[in-house]
Design a protein around this nucleic acid. Structure first.
Lengths: 344, 344
DNA sequence: ATGAAAGCGCTAACAA
DNA sequence: TTGTTAGCGCTTTCAT
């Protein structure tokens, strides 16, 4: 007995079921399903009969069975630190959409920058036979030949890998940001001095940003002692907050510019500043990497470096397509950032 | 415990391969793989031999084959409007994590509130045999019996469904927010008047927020004309911006309080205000649904209603587990919000 | 204590 | 024009 079903809601009917019920063979059914009926000269009558039957009873292919047979799941995966960070969430949204347009489905998972979580997820995705993996790596160590080499690294370049990688040009961004801040100080009659709240220094992107700023300071002839780097262990809100508190409690005065290596650190730093009620005027120059609409709300001069997420995803996806079709153009892509200045 | 992970790149080995290579049967291999060796009195020697072989050569189960056999994919799906909205991204992060803890993998997809996209995604996930679906519905129409009824609705209650649903108590939140704003006005000697920038009115959550505010206005004895509702078609940045521009260009003065129905609308509205350089002082009372750290940065009195995402995800996941184990407690869950007041 | 075999639903190669 | 069959790798049931 076959229950009457509504389109889009068919109780898993198989091609065999349909063939049996219609007294035809699976091949016949499949050919009209694939639209190859004409090509293989299936009779007009049969085709119509099959069409009607399917229109009425519905049919949804069993993708699991297809995958097993074809050794291909039409599924890609993305592992990133967290989705609650807008930058990563935006990357995920863009990539998921891009994949879907290409008939692939994306699985997104968060590893919270934990090496163990990352490894567990990699294993999991291997077992699930995903066709390829996009990875924001939590660390430098990565086995070779994973996913039959269909692996694209994103956002962080640990420099060790035989995998293609797409990152922002963080060193240059740091340099340009530093330049802009220093020149703004000079134009507005302030002595250029910078406090940099730097997140996890083992992250290549964070480190590059720091280095870029250092270079700007050096090339602009600002005394090195005018750049204070307050180091935080990671890149979160609490890291920024704690780092700022430490700085303030060391009794130091606020420099003319406050820069942070990413948005969560920035938010934490401002929270600490507000809590201490000290020296946080509308004149204080602020800067951060990554951008956010909410920065518009600050009365201060604010400068941020925006990463080009759509561009990065385009590059990463193209790289993956290359790997999947064999035209491997294994490459290192470096995407430029854009400086966004507010109230300055 | 038996480590089944591999280091390096063992080319997908099957249980059959291993059995062949070792001159044993698949059953034997499987029994030690499952840790049932003792139980089924497999000889100590055989067990060790198998263990060693696997430790050396590695083995990753083929999840696709397993799924086909068991008619179960250990995969759940989540369809939501977009990930670039922090609220949805946070929900996704929490849910993905929760699922993973339970040995399930989550597939996240964005439908951009398009009915067509949503339907395509539902079909796709059906074909992929996901065990259950979490859905932030884009519209009221939904086929019955989807996913063998393992469907949990999130964030929006269209009120028509036979599926369990988890939402925030938006009407009450609107009411409490309205109360707070009105009493603050009265305390600080302002005449209570409210401009509400309301997003897509066909979204139950948005509508409930509006209704809550209306009720507060009414019960507080504020003249109805002191509540101006500026309607926007959707819930995005541009919607807020356009709505605010329309309001200002109609030549109206800013009321004592400006409320928006969600964060993107709020951001858009503030952008418009800043663009028009008009009447936007630090005294202007602001309010919005949903919360965001960046609201801390505003010098104004700001009030927001924070949804309890962890709680909502707990409820939704528990509901899904109920559906999957047959203890269906089909229910409607309404999660309370928290008022967050800044500078007031 | 271990082995053999059926079958999940699909695709592709080969028959008729 | 249409039909038959052999797997994909796993789990389960039934035989040794």
């Amino acid at each position: 007995m076959h229950p009457i079903t509504i389109t889009g809601n068919a109780m898993a009917q198989t091609v065999d079921d349909i063939a049996d019920h219609m007294g035809l063979s699976v091949t016949t059914i499949r050919l009209v399903l694939l639209g190859k009926a004409r090509q293989y000269r299936i009779s007009r009558a049969t085709e119509t009969r099959v069409r009607d039957y399917i229109d009425e009873h519905g049919y949804q292919i069993n993708h699991t069975a297809r995958s097993l047979r074809l050794k291909r799941t039409d599924t890609l995966a993305l592992i990133l630190p967290r989705l609650s960070n807008h930058y990563f969430a935006y990357l995920a949204e863009l990539l998921e959409c891009r994949c879907r347009e290409a008939g692939l489905q994306l699985m997104v998972a968060c590893c919270d920058d934990s090496e163990a979580n990352q490894q567990a997820l990699i294993d999991n995705f291997q077992q699930r036979n995903v066709d390829g993996l996009f990875l924001v790596p939590a660390n430098a160590k990565l086995a070779a030949k994973l996913f039959d080499n269909r692996l694209v690294l994103l956002d962080r370049d640990f420099g060790m890998s035989e995998y293609p990688v797409v990152v922002s040009d963080n060193e240059r961004a740091g340099f340009e940001l530093g330049q802009k801040l220093i020149s703004f100080c000079r134009q507005s009659g302030r002595d250029p001095s910078i406090l940099l709240l730097a997140g996890n220094p083992f992250m290549p992107s964070i480190d590059a940003r720091t280095e870029g700023i250092k270079r700007a300071v050096k090339e602009a002839g600002v005394p090195r002692k005018n750049l204070h780097v307050q180091q935080a262990p990671r890149n979160g809100f609490s890291d920024g907050k704690n780092a700022m508190h430490r700085y303030l409690r060391a009794g130091q005065n606020l420099p003319s510019v406050l820069v942070s290596s990413s948005i969560p650190v920035f938010e934490g730093a401002l929270a600490a500043l507000r809590a201490e009620q000290r020296g946080y005027s509308c004149e204080q120059v602020l800067a951060t990497f990554d951008d956010n609409t909410m920065l518009d709300f600050l009365p201060n001069p604010v400068c941020s470096m925006r990463q080009d997420c759509p561009h990065m995803i385009d590059l990463a996806f193209a790289e993956m397509q290359g790997l999947m079709t064999g035209h491997a153009t294994i490459g290192r892509h470096i995407s430029p950032l854009t400086l966004v200045a507010r109230n300055m």
